Amino acid sequence: MHNHSYKHFLLVFSLFLCLILPRLAARGAEEQPMEQQQLRIVSLSPNVTETIFALDAGELLVGRSDYCNYPETATTLPSVGTLYNPSLEMLLSLEPNLVISSAFVPEQFLDAVKKAGIDVLTLETQQDFQGTYTLIREIARRTGKDAEAELMILSMQNVVRNVVLKTQQSAKPTVYVALDFGSFDSSATKGTFLSEMVSLAGGINIADDAQNWTYSKELLMSHDPQVILLSPRWGETGEQTLKEFTTTKPYADLSGTIRIFDADLISRQGPRSAQALEELYNLIHQEQMQ
């Protein structure tokens, strides 16, 4: 290249860099998630709160719901109330610029939050184990924690794979998940995340013949499952719930083994779901493991 042509090329190339690079940088900044120090998040769902802390982004949270009780640190954050009836006034006083919800929060409440100029992320993950990974990735994208999310998901997938391999060598007992009982019987019915968890953990979920988390006493008694997983009732210890279950008709007539389980751990789609699957496997196959 002639000297004159080379100088001309350098001049044009320098102009290109001066004009184009700032635009590319600006566009890149727009596509990046909000800088962490600028984000002020209110989480309205326990699994969202767990995920944010697990992704090492807990410092971005300025508020939570009453049910966001894990990790322990989360309980030090101000609460905006229950999932079903949160306080808009309390939420606005925390001055968030992002509100994240995964389920049960009234649509009109979220609309009011949007009208106040606050960004709302509603996570409607599918009711299966894959949906857990979707939830983690969505939250990671908004908090700038994509790399952490992929490492977490890889680790979870390894645990899930190991559990599923173990189930191939195990007998498959019939299982009933008792979420509530008495005047209203609630269980992990067909099409729920918890039902898939029972299946992945090597159990046969008897409640797969019903829908919408509701089960009948007649069906429960006719199946008489081998393993009954009992969730402690709100405000009760596992022992108190177990005593009530085993002394109340018709449940007292069931012949299956009853085991108390941690509903917060097992029924929340989030970073502890692989650990929950392992725990579920141990609960279902306890006899075989002894």
Score class of each variant (00 low, 15 high):
2 H>Q: 09
3 N>M: 09
8 H>D: 05
12 V>A: 05
16 F>H: 07
16 F>Q: 03
16 F>S: 13
17 L>G: 04
21 L>R: 07
22 P>C: 12
22 P>M: 09
24 L>K: 14
24 L>V: 12
26 A>M: 09
26 A>G: 02
27 R>E: 12
27 R>Y: 12
27 R>P: 10
30 E>L: 12
31 E>P: 08
33 P>K: 07
33 P>V: 09
34 M>I: 14
35 E>Q: 15
37 Q>E: 08
38 Q>Y: 13
41 I>C: 02
43 S>C: 05
51 T>D: 01
55 L>V: 05
58 G>E: 08
60 L>G: 09
61 L>V: 05
62 V>C: 08
63 G>Y: 06
64 R>A: 00
65 S>C: 10
71 P>H: 12
73 T>H: 07
77 L>W: 09
77 L>C: 04
79 S>Y: 08
80 V>S: 03
82 T>R: 05
87 S>F: 00
88 L>K: 07
89 E>T: 08
91 L>N: 08
92 L>T: 14
93 S>A: 13
96 P>E: 08
97 N>V: 10
97 N>Y: 03
98 L>C: 11
99 V>W: 03
101 S>C: 11
107 E>M: 10
107 E>H: 11
108 Q>H: 13
109 F>S: 01
110 L>H: 03
110 L>N: 04
113 V>S: 06
113 V>E: 00
114 K>V: 02
117 G>K: 03
117 G>D: 11
117 G>S: 10
117 G>L: 01
118 I>C: 13
121 L>S: 13
123 L>Q: 07
125 T>A: 15
128 D>Q: 14
129 F>T: 04
131 G>L: 14
132 T>P: 10
133 Y>Q: 07
136 I>P: 11
138 E>V: 11
142 R>A: 05
142 R>I: 02
143 T>L: 00
145 K>T: 07
145 K>V: 01
154 L>F: 08
156 M>R: 00
156 M>H: 05
157 Q>A: 05
159 V>D: 11
159 V>R: 10
163 V>K: 12
163 V>Y: 03
164 V>F: 03
170 S>K: 09
171 A>T: 14
171 A>S: 06
175 V>L: 00
177 V>Y: 09
178 A>L: 09
180 D>Q: 14
184 F>Y: 13
186 S>K: 14
188 A>M: 13
189 T>S: 06
191 G>W: 10
192 T>I: 06
192 T>S: 11
192 T>M: 02
193 F>I: 14
197 M>P: 02
198 V>M: 01
199 S>K: 15
199 S>P: 08
200 L>E: 00
204 I>M: 02
205 N>P: 10
207 A>F: 01
209 D>C: 06
210 A>T: 05
210 A>L: 07
213 W>A: 03
216 S>K: 05
218 E>H: 04
219 L>Y: 02
220 L>R: 11
225 P>G: 01
225 P>A: 00
228 I>S: 01
230 L>K: 00
232 P>C: 07
232 P>Y: 00
246 T>A: 04
251 Y>C: 04
253 D>H: 12
255 S>H: 11
255 S>K: 05
256 G>W: 14
257 T>A: 11
261 F>G: 10
263 A>M: 13
265 L>M: 13
266 I>W: 06
273 S>L: 09
277 L>T: 12
278 E>R: 15
278 E>Y: 13
279 E>G: 15
281 Y>Q: 10
282 N>G: 07
282 N>K: 10
285 H>R: 11
286 Q>C: 08
289 M>V: 12
